[in-house]
Amino acid sequence: MRIFGETKERMDKRQADRRQGAPGEREVQTRTAPAVERAQEMVVENLSAYYGNFKAITDVSMHIRPNKITALIGPSGCGKSTFIRTLNRMHEVAPGGRIEGRVLLDGEDIYARDVDPVRVRRRVGMVFQKPNPFPTMSIYDNVVAGLKLTRRRKKSELDEIVERTLRQAALWDEVKNKLSESGTSLSGGQQQRLCIARTLAVEPEVILMDEPASALDPISTQKIEDAMEELKERYTVVIVTHNMQQAARISDYTGFFYIENMGDPGRLWEFDETDKIFSNPGRKETEDYVTGRFG
């Protein structure tokens, strides 16, 4: 209740802090003193997720650290997407989607009875595998789409947010002269960065990304990775990736999901610092997977 029934002052204060955290937007963009305050930790306790009667993951416990990038890897079908979607209550949008266990955001259970999923999703943003900009909106309107859900803002304030978030998503220079064009006029990689900017604009505390670069060319992928490096200064980031090198390069912690026997639900097989997972994993399956022996 404390968090989700958050007072307006606190929200405004945090937004003000956030803005101060990016002083003189135009010159120093994003390379700023970490505005740590908003990044939150998430703690997952004994989480199982179902689709109707089908149990997709079981007994997952994980500590997601603030201002770190946590990568989730594992063979396909072992529940990475399902898991990441439980972190902002998008899982329950799927038919029959429900969970057991607890997910804490800054100490509060996001599945508590009096918690509105809408508020959870404002605090825990999500970027999807396939870029999904709103085709009827301009690039500018795409970025502010989430902001317009909360309260009216001055045009100048919106302009500022649009520029800042597009810079954070490494897209500003490519679109600054065509902000009023449709979001679908962009390439796939640009669209995905637009979706990142759109997510950043609502100022979440945690950002979830489900294979954000899987459909993109190497250059776009590189740009997104670069952007993520800067994002973690302000946000807690969780990313699903099927790309080992990517996980090793960008993440601080890595979780390996695995299904031992066909038909079982997915489990979090191993979770540790990324260096450890990739150099000296604790379990054989993890090692086989990260060295590419199966997958």
Binding site: N88, M90, V93, V118, R119, R121, R122, G125, M126, F128, K130, N132, P133, F134, P135, T136, M137, A145, G146, K148, L149, T150, C195, R198, T199, V202
Partner: peptide, 26 residues
């Protein structure tokens, strides 16, 4: 596409906002 609905929901939209701002315009 459901991706449009999810996109709007993930920004913190209610179901009504999802419908009126993502589904209807599309």
């Amino acid at each position: 596409p459901d991706a449009q609905r999810e996109a709007m929901l993930a920004l913190g939209a209610t179901r009504w906002e999802m419908f009126s701002r993502a589904v209807l315009p599309y």
